[in-house]
């Protein structure tokens, strides 16, 4: 008999401990809100709106099942160039090798970079389901003047994917500098991958450029 009553006793015990912890968690003083010098709440609201609009734009332009994959890539590239700070991201992804690169290498790399990003991400939008929901939740100012915009992609089956957008305001318009999926920075991943390729080709940036070029025609087939 005891064997069967015990789970219930335990259940109520844990409920009571749980409520105690919830109660005490609620009464804890909320941490002081961060006072950021340059960022107003207006800016944060605008940043949020910027991401909401980007979501709408991407959904209408890229998720159509009828467009070809080349067309989707072209559209993605346009969207990427207009909303993302492509130069800063490309530079970041090359890491310490940026300073070693010659001007021609830089130019060649920059051209390939946008293509490579489009190759990686454009196809993801073809898998978009009309029931998927993109929800922008909160914003948080960074100490260096940036704004983190938190969002999530809720799919009908499965856990939501958290997406964090790192946004900076420049000349009255916003630009995205990084995207974090489930806490993983896409820029850092790319930098790590590029650094590995450069190291493996003897520290030569040309090694990365040819690797990126080799990846291109494969995709276009």
């Amino acid at each position: 008999m005891l064997r069967f009553t015990l789970p219930f006793v335990l259940f109520f015990l844990s409920i009571s401990t749980f409520s105690i912890s919830v109660l005490s968690a609620n009464t804890e003083p909320s941490p002081p809100t961060e006072e950021s010098s340059s960022l107003t709440t207006q800016d944060q609201g605008a940043a949020k709106e910027f991401i909401v609009n980007l979501g709408k734009e991407a959904t209408s332009l890229l998720t159509s099942k009828t467009i070809s994959s080349t067309e989707r890539k072209t559209r993605f590239k346009e969207l990427f160039k207009s909303h993302f700070s492509t130069k800063s991201i490309a530079k970041f992804c090359l890491g310490r090798y940026w300073r070693q690169a010659t001007d021609e290498e830089k130019q060649e790399y920059m051209d390939l970079f946008a293509d490579s990003v489009a190759d990686n991400y454009a196809s993801k939008f073809s898998q978009y389901n009309s029931e998927d929901q993109f929800i922008v939740s909160t914003t948080r100012p960074l100490t260096d003047g940036g704004i983190k915009v938190n969002s999530r992609l809720q799919t009908p089956d499965g856990a939501p994917i958290t997406i964090v957008w790192l946004v900076y305001k420049k000349d009255d318009s916003f630009k995205i500098f990084d995207v974090l999926l489930e806490g993983v920075s896409m820029s850092v991943t790319q930098r790590s991958e590029y650094a590995s390729i450069i190291e493996r080709s003897g520290g030569k940036i040309s090694g990365l450029i040819s690797a990126l070029q080799n990846k291109q025609p494969l995709k276009k087939q």
């Binding site: 800063s88 100490t143 990084d178 920075s185 820029s187």
Partner: peptide, 9 residues
């Protein structure tokens, strides 16, 4: 986590 990401120049 704030430091390691692309930043405006």
């Amino acid at each position: 986590m704030d430091s390691d990401h692309p930043q405006p120049e």
